[in-house]
C-alpha cells in the first residue's frame, strides 16, 4: 500500500525525491502518511481535491484486497 501511494505521488510531483511515505499500522486500520515538497502539495491534491480522492479510492481498493482498512493522510 505504501508503494502504491509512493509510485503515484512520485509520478505526479516536480520533486520526486522529496516524497516520503510512511505506513503506521494500527490494530484495525493502517494510516498511510504522505509528505511532499511544499510546492508539490497541489499536485497530489488536485483541483477540488480530485487527485487526492482518486489516490484514496485506489488505496481503499488495494487495502480491501488485503482484507485491511487504510486511510491516506497528506501532511503539510
Amino acid at each position: 500500500m505504501k508503494e502504491l501511494v509512493e509510485f503515484i505521488a512520485k509520478a505526479l510531483v516536480d520533486e520526486p525525491d522529496q516524497v516520503r511515505v510512511t505506513e503506521v499500522e494500527g490494530e484495525r486500520i493502517t494510516v498511510v502518511e504522505l509528505r511532499v515538497a511544499p510546492g508539490d502539495l497541489g499536485k497530489v491534491i488536485g483541483k477540488q481535491g480530485r487527485t487526492a480522492r482518486c489516490i484514496r479510492t485506489l488505496l481503499n481498493a488495494a487495502a480491501t484486497k488485503l482484507r485491511k482498512r487504510a486511510v491516506l493522510e497528506i501532511l503539510e
Binding site: I8, A11, L12, G46, R50, T51, R53, C54, I55, T57, L58, A61, K65
Partner: peptide, 24 residues
C-alpha cells in the same frame, strides 16, 4: 474488482493514469 462502487475505482484509476501519462 477494479470497477468498484458505481465505477468509482475504474474512474479513479483512469484519472490517475491520465494524469501520470500527461506528465510523462
Amino acid at each position: 474488482l477494479l470497477i468498484g462502487k458505481q465505477g468509482q475505482t475504474l474512474d479513479a484509476v483512469e484519472f490517475l493514469v491520465g494524469r501520470i501519462l500527461d506528465r510523462a
